[in-house]
Write a protein that binds this DNA or RNA. Sequence first.
DNA 1: TGCAATAATAGTAATACTTCCTATTATGTT
DNA 2: AACATAATAGGAAGTATTACTATTATTGCA
Lengths: 141, 141
Amino acid sequence: MATTKFSRQREAILRYLKSTTSHPTAELVYNEVRKSYPQVSLGTVYRNLNLLSENGSILRLQCGDGSEHFDATTASHPHLFCRECHSLIDLPGAVKPDLLSDIAADYRGRLESYSLMCFGLCEHCADLKRKVNDKKEDSYG
Amino acid sequence: MATTKFSRQREAILRYLKSTTSHPTAELVYNEVRKSYPQVSLGTVYRNLNLLSENGSILRLQCGDGSEHFDATTASHPHLFCRECHSLIDLPGAVKPDLLSDIAADYRGRLESYSLMCFGLCEHCADLKRKVNDKKEDSYG
DNA sequence: TGCAATAATAGTAATACTTCCTATTATGTT
DNA sequence: AACATAATAGGAAGTATTACTATTATTGCA
């Protein structure tokens, strides 16, 4: 078996992901890591993101915007993709831990993990919407 | 506003998606629709899949295998991506309808819909695994 | 029924995003 | 220090998807 060797680039990628809650794409990780390793290549970033997600160090998120996002908080937790500002954010509050077992009760296969992506409005965009509605009420009522 | 006009190709795409439970990719939809419309182009398939998913006629599913899958069963329901045979299947049994409200209780934004993707083994692959394990027990124990 | 307006299409070019390839460099071991 | 090899940089190649444009299909109306 090929043993995994340490690499500064991989450490920088993981360190960056652990330092942010912004769920960056590969491209954003690349731009960030380039600040400390100007010679790093996009291929290296992709190879390591794949390696880290395969060994469970990070999560791979898809929200329907075409590209993939990465998250170093590996415990299954829900995300929200805002349909207004297109930001991808962590949702506070745990999902019921028995989410999978409820489903598994009806199913003879094996459920090991899940990814829950919510769609709607983030707090900021929901606030804006409320303000706009308030104004409308002012003018018409 | 541009009004949407009828198109045979779009109808064929939707009809096919409604006739199957296999969650095909754009490429597979293309191959299928080509049987009735040999001249159809991949661009048309993509444009219509986007249109149909934007107007809520179909769902867009991502299971981490790189491409997108489409589903004409539009009610939010859970899916399973089998890590062994890589098939993407519907999970029976409803998710608790209060799944979103539980989360929304802690959140000031607005949650409108969700996509729940489970990972593990489908019934078929889970069965195979059990048989292999049984054999091992035979030989070693 | 025929005509005008325009949405949708086919076919192709262009654009992501991601992986693959190869010579070179970094890491870990003896 | 020397060896074995994992990992890298840089660029080429491969997919999945979108954009462009001349042509065709659909719709509303005379």
